[in-house]
């Protein structure tokens, strides 16, 4: 294997045998290596980023080179959920269900601004979207961009690969309420104007 020596070195550094009668950590390392090189994504696109996800699998970028090309339509057979696009409130429960249906070990990549934190559709008082998929499911890697280029997606998956080999691929959910600087933008909600006034002047 081409990347083997480096990876083995990394494993040696980061893993220490846990206490116990029988240790399976070496076996676990081998499995992690296998998992890292065989991430089957779930066929699943939400919006714009899905097109770049498709482009990532298509001829020029070809995710299959690294073994990420077996796109499974059934969540039961997938390892990796690439959340590509805006999560609307209506879609959020379905994503949660899909995540629950995937067998562990499972990983999540938040692709693009919307899946990371709401992207361009975030404004104070918005009513339609969930600001970041990490509010409902744990995320391993965030890929920024709107939409990210396919290269960025590949880099994201390779980063996840590194995490898995190191045995550190624990996803995180974000705290319930996130205050970021953008939330202070005042939204200019207008009041209704009078129709009679409007008609008079036009």
């Amino acid at each position: 294997m081409e990347i083997n020596p480096k990876e083995l070195e990394l494993m040696g550094k980061t893993q220490s045998p846990p206490p116990g009668l029988v240790n399976f950590f070496k076996v676990e390392d081998v499995f992690n290596l296998a998992r890292a090189h065989s991430l089957w994504p779930l066929t699943f696109g939400l919006a714009c980023c899905a097109i770049e996800l498709m482009a990532g699998g298509a001829a020029r970028f070809d995710m299959d080179r690294f073994g990420f090309g077996v796109v499974r339509p059934s969540p039961r057979q997938a390892d990796l959920m690439i959340v590509a696009g805006t999560i609307s409130r209506k879609m959020a429960p379905c994503i949660k269900t899909l995540y629950d249906q995937m067998p562990s070990p499972k990983y999540v990549i938040a692709l693009g601004g919307c899946a990371t934190a709401g992207g361009p559709f975030k404004y104070p008082g918005q009513y339609g979207i969930l600001e970041g998929i990490d509010k409902i499911i744990p995320v391993n890697v965030y890929v920024p961009g709107c939409p990210p280029r396919p290269e960025a997606l590949l880099a994201g998956i390779l980063e996840l690969q590194k995490q898995i080999i190191e045995g550190k691929a624990q996803g995180r959910t974000s705290p319930a309420v996130v205050h970021d600087s953008q939330d202070n933008r005042p939204a200019e909600h207008k009041n209704a104007i009078s129709r009679a006034e409007f008609r008079k002047t036009t």
Binding site: F31, S38, D62, D64, R65, F66, G67, P103, S104
Partner: peptide, 30 residues
């Protein structure tokens, strides 16, 4: 399909399916 297919895992991707098999072995059985 104008692309390369698995080439990075082992020589010419020869260990790719082995990795897939090992991974499937270690997956949760739902």
């Amino acid at each position: 399909q104008l692309r390369r297919g698995p080439i990075h895992v082992g020589w010419q991707g020869s260990l790719q399916t082995l990795a897939d098999a090992l991974k499937l072995l270690s997956k949760e059985l739902v």
